[in-house]
Each structure stands twice: as structure tokens, then as C-alpha cells.
Design a protein around this nucleic acid. Structure first.
Lengths: 346, 346
DNA sequence: TTGCCAATTGGAAGCGCTTCCATGGAAGCG
DNA sequence: CGCTTCCATGGAAGCGCTTCCAATTGGCAA
């Protein structure tokens, strides 16, 4: 059975100091003699003492608990690379810093989703939230969270939130632009675009970048068709045919993420098209699936795992640093266009 | 800023009862008049009171915290469907039951991995652990955890652990058997088998089932070749050529999971083979990738998300139920052979 | 020497909850 | 009617920690 764990008082007794002093040592507080500090640490070692996070949280109000909030529908989407990778990064970021992160799946579009996020603060006593799209663009939600005294870092915000709150991400607009330039260079002039879900503003920036690149070549509304998917493989398979049947007869399909591009690829296969000879297809994210499909997908790489890790680090810095009111920081990472084998001259 | 949350004493004052009575109501204890219970609940509602889990944990020793332990190397494997799906199921299972689950990535093969798992109990005060392979087969670890008074549910144990501890999973041996029967029915007589990592006993059971099916047809050691991968797409791409170059010249490649099968498929494409005309390939798990690759993969479906959810439910039942010493339960779910388009007559 | 300040340490209070034990009243029984 | 038993409730203690404030020391300027 569980034997009783040593407490801070045991450590105090063994090392011959007061409980407060042990607490100071444990929390790295100043004004403790080096000799005493060493003695306490030795006792900690010897007793295999671990602080009780519950007690610490109760006394100090610091739960050292973060939450990573993502929106996938738990029924349909058991494996979005984007969220898994963010999560893994966040987990890794926490490891070294003594924080824990609660993974929270809060389906979007439900009337109580704001409340469920806010409940994380009151119910679980989370001190900081990492919000992935589309929550990272939900200014009202973010302000409500901040009003509770809980810190926030957004991942891939696309709209107003990008300038107003701490965040991490890549330049999605530039990513879309760079990728499209490549397609234009290959001679494509008629495009289909499979956009992402409404409200995912960073994904819409990819479309914006696409449009800017076209505009520079004198192409406009009449030269491309847009449909909206939900980031899943399935939606790619459904939507690609619509684009291919469009009177425009696009020679390239640009997709807001890799899963939909993989779906489009599959739909193209099913029609007997040879990729990239008959049609170019591009994705975004550089998820594992991009390398798995045949032929491997041309896409835009973004360092998703790093994003998750950096988000945690930023959050903890806000929590522990004294700079409570310093201006928000959006940390931007580089993207890279990865040309694989789904793109060829028109 | 964060306004002070109401405490149990506030609720007690508003509802005109003692603090203990509120505690009883909150915990569903017996011996409270219905009228009083209603009055307390009304005060809770009115004040928007939420129990402070830190305080509850400190006082009662119940953290209501579980941990889901998985082994992937965080550097290489950002997106194993199997673990993501288990996790999602576990998250969902917790939602309704008022528990929280900490996701813990503990790389296997490191000397301190046992200690890191045990630290979850002492450091985080987890009351129960969900162990996925290969930890679910690590009898020494499981016994050490149980010795600390922490409950365990294993996911897909394959060896001795299956009979000795609570667990969930499918009959992997039968899955391998059923799938192989199908291949034999199609006339295949020479096989390559891409097995999983050492120590993942449930994956080895798939090989056992494969061997049993062969044995029934009078086939044996001379009729198949086995290589070991690490469950990744990449390992499938590396290992498939070895099997294809084997003097046996197998007509079917059986893989211990879908990712490796997808890798094998990709390697086969790269050789110019037409699947399934020139070679049959099968996977296991029915991960999304099985439907994404071209042609879609014949595989064995197992309800991974349900496994995760059920694991949590079993764990919480152990934790809250009085049947502390009742015999271990292995809950087995049905598998289904899903015949898609990577299998054809030899 | 005296006074003052910084550095170091400890005592005490209390975070918000549960558990143990005591209390008073209603109900059951011979 | 006096006894035990059960139910409903409350008082008090205390879980293990941090924070506030007081006490003690030594160093250094006046």
C-alpha cells in the first residue's frame, strides 16, 4: 500500500531548519546561505521528498497548470496532425519547466464553448491557456479569459488577435503567396482553392496570399474558384471533384492544409488523372501525410511542434516574469515551400 | 483581474447550513435531507461555486488525476494515430466523470523510464495510470505502480499482463489469424511479415495469429520471412524492399500496423509495382492513413478511441468502486477485417 | 561606540476542503 | 416509559504548503 510521503516538515526536521527555509530553498528564493541550501537539498534527496502540488496550489494560489485548448470534433477527427503536434510540443515545453498541461478538447460551434473554456480557469485553476485555431482568433473569448487573470498564448492567430495578444505562428499569408508564386512559375493560370473552415483566420490568410500572388500577375476573381472544406481528408475528396468540374477547368488545386490536399489527390486518382501530369495539387503544413501519399505532396512546411513548445514557454514567461504589462509578442517562425511531386508545369 | 472565488463557506453561509453539510451534498453523501440538499445546490448555483480541486486533494487525498502514459519518441513520431486516438478516447471518458487525465510521453528504452512513470504518482499525485504498449506489458513496472497504491489499466497487453491486470484491447492473435486466412483464401502461399518493435507483445500476437493460419494450411518457417520495424511509415519504406528481395519472393506483405503498411506500399510504388496486381499488402488498426493511401489499405479495424475511453472508465470504477480486490478484468473488443484494395489473388 | 540597514531565519496564520467525532432528536422495541 | 439505534447535522482538527511579519545577526557609516 501507499506509504506516507515525507512532507516539508520532515525535510525541515532532518536538515535542522524551519519549514519556511525549506520552502525558500525549494522555490529558489534569495537570502538563503549556500551552506543551508545544500543541507536542505541533501535532506530532500535523502528522504526522496517531492512537493505536494495540491498543497502548494492551495497555499500559494499557483497551480502550475496550463491548458491546451483545441476544437476538433471528437467524433470525426481522431487524428489531426496539427493538433497532435502542437500538443506534443506543449508537453515537451512543460517537461523542463515544472508545469503540467491539461489537454482540452472543446468542440467549437456549440453555444457553451466559451463557458467551457472559462470553466478551465475556475474549475481546474489553470493559470494559462494555449488557444489553437479557431479559438486563437476569438477576441471576445480571449478578453474574457484575460479578465479572469488567466494568461493566454494564441497559436496561429490570423486576425486582430495577432496584434493584440501573445502568440506564435508562421506568416500564413506569405506561405500562401510563396507557394502560389511557385505554381505561377510553372505556368498555371487557372486555379481551384480548397479553403478551410470559417473562422480559422490563419487558414484564410493562405488564401489571401494566394490571391495577392495572382494579382501580381494580373489574375483575379475570374481565374480561380474557391470552396470551403473542414480540413479533413474526406472534405478534400468531396470538394476536389466540384472544382474539377468547374467551367474554369483549373490546372492546379491549392488546399489550405495537407489532409484536404491528400483527399483531393485521392479524388483525382479516382477520376483516373495522373498527378502531376494532368493536375497539380498543393497542401499546407507539411504533415506526415504529405510524405506518405503517392506522389508525395508539394506543401508549405511549418514547425508545428516547435510552435507548441514555444507557446508554453511564452506562457510560462508571462506567468513567472515580472513584466506583467509588457506589450504582446507575436513570435513568427519561418515557413518553407517544400516542392515534392504533386506539382509540374501546367 | 481575478476576483476572489466563492468558497465552501460562502455556500454554507448563503444556504444556512454548516460547511460539512455542503461538502456532503457536493460529494453525494447519504444522510442529507432532500430539502437541505436542494437549498445547498441552489446556493451553489447562485454563487457559481466550483470546488477547489487543490483543496479537495489536500484534505481528502483524492486528486482525481489520472495519467495516460505512452512511449513514442517525441523527436521522431509526432503523430501516431494509435496513441492520439487512445488519448482522445481517454479525454472523452474523463469529461463526464469529473477526472482529469495528464498526458505523459515517457520515451521507452531509457534507463529512467520506470522511475519517470513512478514519479507521476509521487510528484503529480496521480491516482491511476493508463499504460499503452509497451508499458502495458511491463509486469515489473505495473507491479511497482500497484505497490504504491496507484491503480492501473493496460491497453492492448499481449503477454502475462493480460491475465494479471485490468486491461482493454482486441484479440490481436485472432486479428492476425483472420486477416491471414483471407490472404490464404486469395491463394497466397509466400509471405513477408513486417513485425513491430520488440516488447510490443500485442503486435507480436498478430504475428502469432499469422503463423497459426499458415500452420493450418501446412505452411511453416520456410514459407515466410519476418523483419522488425518500429511502427513508422519510414520503417515500412526501408523494410519492404528487403522482403521483396528475399529469395522467397513473397506475393503478400503483412504488416503489424497501418503506418508500416503505408510505407511498404510507397516502397512498392517506387519499384514500379502495381498494387494489388503484383503484390498484396495488409496493415492493422484501420488508422485514417489506411483510407488515405492509394489504393486504400486492407487492414484489421480495432476501436482504438473506444479502448481509450473504456480504459478510463475501468480505472475510475476501480478507484471509486468498493471492489478493491475483485479479480482483474480484461475487456475485449471485436475486431473486423476490412478488405479494401491492396489485396488480390496471388 | 551608536544607529541603521540588509541579509538570514523562524513563528504564526491560513489557503479551502474532508474526515473524525460529538450532538440532538426521531424512531423502534420490550 | 426507558432503552438503544439510526438519521441529520455541526464543531474542530488538520491535510502540506506559502505568505506575512517579527526577530536576530553582522557590517558599515556617522
Amino acid at each position: 500500500m501507499r506509504t506516507k510521503r515525507p512532507t516539508i516538515d520532515d525535510v525541515a526536521r532532518v536538515s535542522g531548519v524551519a519549514r519556511v527555509t525549506v520552502s525558500r530553498v525549494l522555490n529558489g528564493a534569495p537570502n538563503v546561505r549556500e551552506e543551508v541550501r545544500a543541507r536542505v537539498m541533501q535532506a530532500v534527496e535523502h528522504l526522496d521528498y517531492k512537493v505536494n502540488p495540491q498543497a502548494r496550489g492551495l497555499a500559494g494560489g499557483a497551480s502550475r497548470l496550463l491548458a491546451f485548448v483545441f476544437a476538433s470534433d471528437p467524433e470525426n477527427d481522431p487524428n489531426s496532425y496539427y493538433e497532435s503536434a502542437l500538443e506534443l510540443g506543449a508537453l515537451r515545453g512543460c517537461l523542463a519547466l515544472g508545469y503540467q498541461v491539461l489537454i482540452q478538447n472543446v468542440p467549437n460551434q456549440t453555444p457553451d464553448c466559451h463557458q467551457r473554456v472559462l470553466d478551465l480557469i475556475t474549475t481546474q485553476r489553470c493559470e494559462g491557456l494555449i488557444l489553437s485555431p479557431p479559438y486563437s482568433d476569438d477576441v471576445a473569448l480571449i478578453e474574457a479569459v484575460l479578465a479572469q487573470g488567466c494568461k493566454v498564448v494564441t497559436v496561429s492567430p490570423g486576425g486582430a488577435a495577432k496584434n493584440r495578444f501573445d502568440g506564435v505562428g508562421v506568416d500564413d499569408e506569405a506561405g500562401g503567396y510563396d507557394l502560389t508564386r511557385e505554381l505561377l512559375r510553372l505556368g498555371h493560370r487557372r486555379f481551384g482553392f480548397i479553403a478551410g473552415l470559417e473562422g480559422h483566420l490563419s487558414a484564410d490568410l493562405r488564401l489571401k496570399g494566394f490571391q495577392r500572388a495572382l494579382g501580381e500577375q494580373g489574375l483575379g476573381e475570374g481565374d480561380y474558384a474557391v470552396v470551403r472544406g473542414d480540413f479533413t481528408f474526406r472534405s478534400g475528396t468531396h470538394l476536389a471533384p466540384k472544382l474539377l468540374d468547374h467551367p474554369l477547368a483549373p490546372t492546379a488545386l491549392v488546399c489550405a492544409n495537407d489532409d484536404m490536399a491528400a483527399g483531393a489527390l485521392s479524388a483525382a486518382h479516382a477520376r483516373g488523372l495522373t498527378i502531376p501530369r494532368d493536375l497539380s495539387i498543393t497542401g499546407f503544413d507539411d504533415a506526415p501525410v504529405a510524405a506518405i501519399v503517392w506522389p508525395p505532396l508539394t506543401t508549405v512546411h511549418q514547425p508545428v511542434k516547435i510552435l507548441g513548445q514555444r507557446a508554453v514557454e511564452l506562457l510560462i514567461a508571462r506567468l513567472t516574469g515580472g513584466d506583467v504589462a509588457s506589450p504582446p509578442v507575436f513570435q513568427q517562425f519561418d515557413h518553407v515551400v517544400v516542392s515534392r511531386q504533386t506539382t509540374a508545369p501546367a
